[in-house]
Design a protein around this nucleic acid. Structure first.
Length: 441
RNA sequence: GGCGCCGUACCCAAGUGGCUAAGGGAGAGGUCUGCAAAACCUUUAUGCAGCGGUUCGAAUCCGCUCGGCGCCUCCA
């Protein structure tokens, strides 16, 4: 059974969804004011892993991830560009979804936009108002709690639910008066709308514990008199080359920046998942290269196993090895998603299987089973390069030409063909069983 | 100042009381190969920031010191 560290209790707890095998999950999505950076993606990739692992373990997951499409930065930036708010946020929402696809982040089941849920937020604020939890500040317009982002509070623990409209800024005409929602109210309103007043897991970066999540708890539980969330899960921050990522330090990377430097998205995903989520991750160029090399090993494994695989039955002893590896893999992941240990299990398995292959003690059925396990683990991690299926006939022909050249010991010609193929991104490997090729990335 | 996290090999990183301290990367030597690549074999921490303590036994628990980092109403 999966054990998760619950920030609420500061302890590891067994996950027991309220409704047997259904997990109701809410994750704090992006604020679409700019391209998401690599730190944002650490969180999103982790959330994707959580989702995938829950499904791997047989849970049905209802995953809701919000898009915050109204806030100060968005208003400011769209005004600066002179384009409507909606046009601005659509641009960055699409960029976010595209980046997510590249990192193999599965889309959530429901992805509500804050601006589509103003009535729900107003209703929630009204509930709080009726119960006397709110107050209105003197100001231009009435509101449950009205002011600009730079506001003064009557008490340190107070926060704003509804911000009064300001000159020249987008606003919604509501029964609270013209204005726009405060930062926290959208997550309470939307999570409860789609997941109920109490749901299982709520995820977000550690920086959101306070004030965002504490405020969500306050406003939700005051409104419903029910516990809001059962398990809070917070991935730690990512730092870059040992320092906090910031624009002024020049170590601020979006996914696009990294892909422009020809880093593979799978390598980025692997690096992001290779460190336990509750530990700070130091994102470095060296780490990226190491991740890239590790992935090559998995790719070679996949290639050689597919080559060897046939439909025969695996040996009982090998089948037992696979069963053991699976057990260890699950054990690691069940332990608060210990991805480093789980990857260790996978690579250890790769290593012992390669050994057997080289010793000639791996059958075709074993190879098929081995590949099956690697792919199974990869349902959770999704870092393996895509499988090459059909041999490109041109490549095949060049390989034949090179073989002929080698037979007549014309190595200059053979190397010329190999170099040419390499220049086309095809790498050859000569083995006892013949020449193997793969695409370089 | 308040709250919290971390320091394991050249690099990344599991392990949190008891077999020989996972795994990946990088390096070195070897097998295979016309050469290369891949794979395999051998090799790289008698030691886990330092110093004390608890214990039959500690990287793992406790204390202190040193070093790095995060949150404390912009933040994933």
């Amino acid at each position: 059974m999966l054990r998760l560290h619950n920030t609420l209790t500061r302890a590891e707890e067994q996950l027991q969804p309220a409704e047997d095998m259904l997990v109701r999950l809410y994750t704090c999505g992006p604020t679409v004011y700019d391209y998401a950076h690599i730190g944002n993606f650490r969180t999103f990739v982790f959330q994707d892993l959580l989702c995938r692992y829950l499904r791997y373990r047989g849970y049905q997951v209802r995953h809701v991830m919000n898009i915050t499409d109204v806030d100060d930065r968005i208003i400011q930036n769209s005004k600066a560009l002179g384009i409507p708010l909606k046009e601005y946020t659509t641009r960055y929402t699409e960029a976010f979804l595209e980046d997510s696809r590249k990192l193999r982040i599965l889309p959530p089941d429901i992805m509500p936009l804050a601006t589509d849920h103003i009535p729900e937020m107003v209703q929630l604020i009204r509930r709080l108002e009726e119960k006397g939890y709110t107050y209105r500040r003197s100001g231009i317009q009435p509101g449950a709690r009205v002011d600009a982002d730079r506001y003064e509070k009557d008490e340190a623990r107070d926060f704003v639910l509804w911000k009064a409209a300001k000159e020249g800024e987008d606003f919604w005409e509501t029964e609270l008066g013209p204005g726009r929602p405060g930062w926290h109210i959208e997550c309470s309103a939307m999570s409860m709308k789609y997941l109920g007043e109490t749901f299982d897991i709520h995820c977000g970066g550690v920086d959101l514990i306070f004030p965002h999540h504490e405020n969500e708890i306050a406003q939700s539980e005051c409104a419903t008199d029910k516990p809001f969330v059962r398990y809070w899960v917070h991935p730690e921050f990512l730092i870059v080359e040992g320092e906090k990522m910031s624009k002024s330090l020049g170590n601020f990377f979006t996914l696009r920046d990294l892909l422009a430097k020809e880093h593979r998205p799978e390598a980025i995903r692997h690096l992001l998942l290779s460190v336990h989520y509750r530990k700070q991750l130091n994102f470095t160029a060296d780490g990226l290269h190491q991740a890239h090399s590790a992935l090559n090993r998995l790719e070679n494994f996949s290639l050689r196993m597919s080559e060897k695989a046939d439909s025969s039955d695996p040996c009982p002893s090998f089948f037992e090895q696979v069963r053991l590896a699976r057990e260890k893999f699950i054990e690691a992941m069940d332990d608060d998603l210990n991805t480093s240990a789980a990857l260790g299990v996978l690579f250890e398995f790769v290593s012992t299987t390669f050994k057997m292959l080289d010793q000639g003690s791996l059958s075709g059925g074993d190879a098929r089973t081995a590949l099956g396990f690697a792919r199974e683990a990869d349902q959770v991690f999704d870092v393996m390069p895509e499988q090459q299926t059909l041999l490109d006939s041109q490549i095949h022909q060049k390989i034949e030409e090179r073989l002929a050249a080698r037979r007549r010991r014309d190595f200059a010609e053979a190397d010329r063909i190999r170099d040419w193929l390499l220049s086309q991104g095809i790498q050859l490997e000569d083995t006892r069983e013949g020449t193997r090729w793969k695409r370089l990335h």
